[in-house]
Nucleic acid binder design. Structure first.
Lengths: 106, 106
DNA sequence: TTGACATATGTCGATATCAGCATATGTTGG
DNA sequence: CCAACATATGCTGATATCGACATATGTCAA
């Protein structure tokens, strides 16, 4: 999962699918990467369950399966307190000073 | 950033640092991976700004820099509506049925 | 200074990854 | 059936990655 998201193109595909179902060709146009690459990235994404597709005529419409992002969402959530922590509180501030000073008289 | 998080050991290190500063040796014990590996993973994490370290004696104390997780948090947030969307709403439900039926009479 | 400890770095081999290209598969219309 | 379109798959070379090992760097204690 995390691995699938490590690629920028793949995130671009997901972002595009956020607007709704898309055919492969549309994604190719939107993201200006080659069709085989798009297909391969879609394969990776579908292997981890982030997208699903249905056939419609000769097109294949891919759609987002956002539920699969829950593990990522939950993982990030566990850092939310730390992200929001005031970093200018005294103890952290001292650590910061100490860190910046520890190579000043080498 | 996303790339740095793609490795499970690296996420393990971040999780361990969530509790506070840690020396490399402590991380080695906690995560039971080799010391050089821990150092290398810490290097990757510090290259993307997710951790910082300060020297204390012969120890090097690494600490989390959670602010750097903001981009990830924000990216995930943009999917929050989709994650929380009722998937049993009619339009999505029809898509689901259609998808499940399209290989039933092959 | 020497020796022990804590950490970082270099190298190597195995494995994965990605982009580009060619080509196979499946679909529609005539 | 054939031809054109839409998509998927296979192959290749370049590049990155990870783990294991050895070893270098830096720091303290005596």
């Amino acid at each position: 999962m995390f691995n699938a998201l490590a690629d920028g193109h793949r995130r671009g595909i997901l972002d595009a699918l956020l607007a709704g179902e898309r055919a492969v060709g549309e994604l190719v146009d939107d993201l200006s990467i080659s069709q085989p690459q798009v297909s391969k990235h879609l394969r990776v994404l579908s292997e981890v369950g982030l997208v699903a597709c249905r056939a419609q005529g000769r097109h294949r419409l891919y759609r987002l399966k956002p539920e699969q992002l829950r593990p990522l969402r939950d993982w990030v959530s566990s850092y939310e307190p730390a992200i929001n922590a005031r970093l200018d509180r005294m103890d952290d501030y001292l650590i910061q000073l100490q860190r910046e000073g520890d190579d000043s008289d080498a």
